[in-house]
């Protein structure tokens, strides 16, 4: 299948209100990742909402509906579960809250670890179960 052109009908990103980042664990426009303890600045290339660690892709369950609303009272650690793609080809990381089991989809940022992203994306192919064998039998 040929690659779909990105320049074609690319949907502009939905306008979302950007909230001020205040609260516990926030100092100097940075937060500390719950997974790998890396200090991560809030400014991210390609997105207005930094919502996961660019190194280990872990996140924190703080937002409920709108990114940045800080309305969730769970505060559990969210582990990356799988990779999804929008129809225009943009990648989304599906996060899974380890405390309450909730799922959320987050766009990847420009400085996310490419190896971690690719590991997540090829995880179904590395699993030697039935669907892979169905492809081999074609």
């Amino acid at each position: 299948m040929p690659r779909r052109s990105v320049r074609g009908g690319r949907r502009p990103q939905r306008a979302k209100p950007v909230r001020e980042h205040r609260g516990e664990g926030v100092r100097g426009g940075a937060f500390r990742c719950v997974g790998c303890r890396l200090d991560v600045p809030f400014d991210a290339p390609g997105t207005a909402h930094r919502n996961h660690c660019p190194h280990c892709l872990a996140s924190l369950h703080v937002d409920l509906r709108v990114p940045g609303d800080r309305a969730a009272d769970c505060r559990g650690r969210m582990a990356p579960l799988s990779m999804s793609a929008r129809p225009d080809g943009e990648w989304l990381v599906i996060h899974h809250c380890l405390a309450c089991g909730d799922l959320s989809a987050n766009r990847i940022a420009g400085d996310d670890n490419a190896l971690a992203l690719l590991r997540l994306a090829v995880r179904p192919l590395s699993d030697p179960t039935v669907p892979v064998r169905a492809l081999m039998s074609l």
Partner: peptide
Amino acid sequence: AVRPLAQPPF
């Protein structure tokens, strides 16, 4: 499963 790999961001 392979849909993300059809259009990688890098």
